[in-house]
Each structure stands twice: as C-alpha cells, then as structure tokens.
Amino acid sequence: MKRNKVSYINKHTGVFLILASILVISALFSPSFVAPNNLLAMLRQASSLGILTIGQLFVIIGGGVDLSVESILQMAITIFMYGYNNFGDAGLIYGLIAAFIFGAFAGLINGILVIRFNVQPFLTTLFTGSIITGIRMIWVGIESAGHVPELIRFFGRDKTLNIPNAVIVLLLVAIIAGVILNKHVYGRKLIAVGTSFTTSVYSGIRSHRTVVFSYIISGVMAVLASIIISGYIGYADRWIGAGMSFNSLIAAVIGGNYLGGGRGSVIGAIGGALLMTIIVNFVILLGLPASYQHIFSGLVLIATIFIGSLSKKISLQNLIGRQ
C-alpha cells in the first residue's frame, strides 16, 4: 500500500515547524541571527533547560512530574561551591560528587513518596522542592557563593572545536537518554509502567522501582544542569534557575510529550527546550515591547501545541483510513 505523505507528520511536527519558521523569519530580519556561531550560542543557552527537560521526560513517561528540579539545581550549586570555597580544587571534586549524590537522593525521596505513599507527584515534588530551598536558606542564607571555578566554566561557557561544551554535554545526554528509552529494557519497562501501572505490576515488572529510578534520573539531570547553567553565567547566584521546574515541564509538553505517561521523545523534549529559549531571542529581535512579547510568546506556544495535536489527529485519520 502506498504510504500517505501526511503520515510523516508526527507529534513533534509542531515544535520543529515553529522552530524552522522562527529561524526563517529571523534570518529575514537579521541574517546574523542564523549564523552558525549564533545558532551554537542559542543551543548553549538552551542546554541547561534541555538537560533538565530530558530528566523531566523520564518522570513524565513514568506518569509523574518533578517540580523539585530547580531546588535540586540550586542546592547542587551550593554544595559544590561550598566544597570549592572551603577546600579549593579538591573540595570542588568532592563537592561535585556530593552534589550528584544529593541529586540522586532527592530523586529517591521523591520517588519513594510518590510511589510508596501514593502522594500526588505534583504536590510531593513541589513540597520537597520547598523543603530543599528552606534547608539551603538555613544553611547559607542568600549570600552568593561567588565566581565559579574554571572547571565549571569549561562545561558551561567554553568550547571544543568551536562547539560549546554545554551543547556537547546536551547531545551526549540526549543520545544516552534516547538509547535508554528506545533500546534498553529499563526504557521499555518505564513506558509500560507509565501506560498502565496496574498492568505493568501484573506483568511482573518491578514498577515501584522503575518509577523511583525515573525520579533519581531527574535529580541527577538537575545536578548536571546546575553545572552547565552556573558555568554559563560564571557565578553562583543563589537564585539561578528560578522558574526552570515549570519551564522544563512546558518544554517537554510543547515538544509533543504526553503528561499522562507511557510515551515520550527525547527529540521532542530538546525541540521544546530549544523553542522555549529561541522564542525569547526572537521577540527581542522583532523589537516588540515587553508586554507584547508575553502575548506573542503565548500565541506561538499555543500554535505549537495546536499543530502538534492537529498532526496527531491527521495521523489517527490516516491509520483509520488504512484499516
């Protein structure tokens, strides 16, 4: 049977169609906007959100959400900067190890609360995030932790062969996440658990463990994102990353991922993070006043979701037509 061309349209079409449109229009306004260096700069800007969104994606596929990621990110910066400020370069290494352990532990707690005690993921992670922020405030107050060391700058600011290291890290994370979700048994288990928790339990999957592990992955991704974003800006402001929990959730959804769990795509998540970043740059380039920027950004994001759901509808119609 001849394959209908529209069947190539999938749930990620919206985000990439809008991204392409933005780049074309931007090129008309300012050719330098689409120059390779600027495109790489925008990819670098999107890297920390992209990594956070990939972590969020694992949780979403398992049927949950993680709103504690920005608190974990901020605490991670505090931990490794504490190590660096007090014990120098060796302290930084220990601080980084401690930060990753903390991220995994925070994810473990989130996962256990959600799955063992059957608490709504939205509320659980919101409150654990709040507790983490409270502990951080008691520990260090609001005092900035100062300029980040060169090792952190290497990951957030520097380049290798003219490609920002942050982008390389994002790509590596995306490839690993893609392999886990599509090829590894854990990915298949997570999809099964997210599709139907009860069925997965009866199928012999260790569903509780699978979900808990998705939160651990999200926690670890938040720590990785903390290195990228603090390296990007160069100092450890206590409020770096504010708003990124919701942004990572939005990025995942506008990338065509489904909050109900059971499916998800790394490419879509990256597309969502890219769009969330580039749209800020685009409205600046258009020279819109700040208040209009909000309206315009909102309209573009709605259009993305609309195209995404339209493409799903077309795919479904094609499927029915073939049957």
Binding site: Q45, I229, Y232, D237, I240, G241, A242, V280, N281, I284
Partner: peptide, 11 residues
C-alpha cells in the same frame, strides 16, 4: 538574573 540578562544581551 544574570543568566536571563546574558541570554537577552547575546541576542
């Protein structure tokens, strides 16, 4: 925010 400002200034 330094990060937000840096992104906008880069644009």
């Amino acid at each position: 925010s330094g990060a937000v400002t840096k992104q906008k200034m880069e644009t």
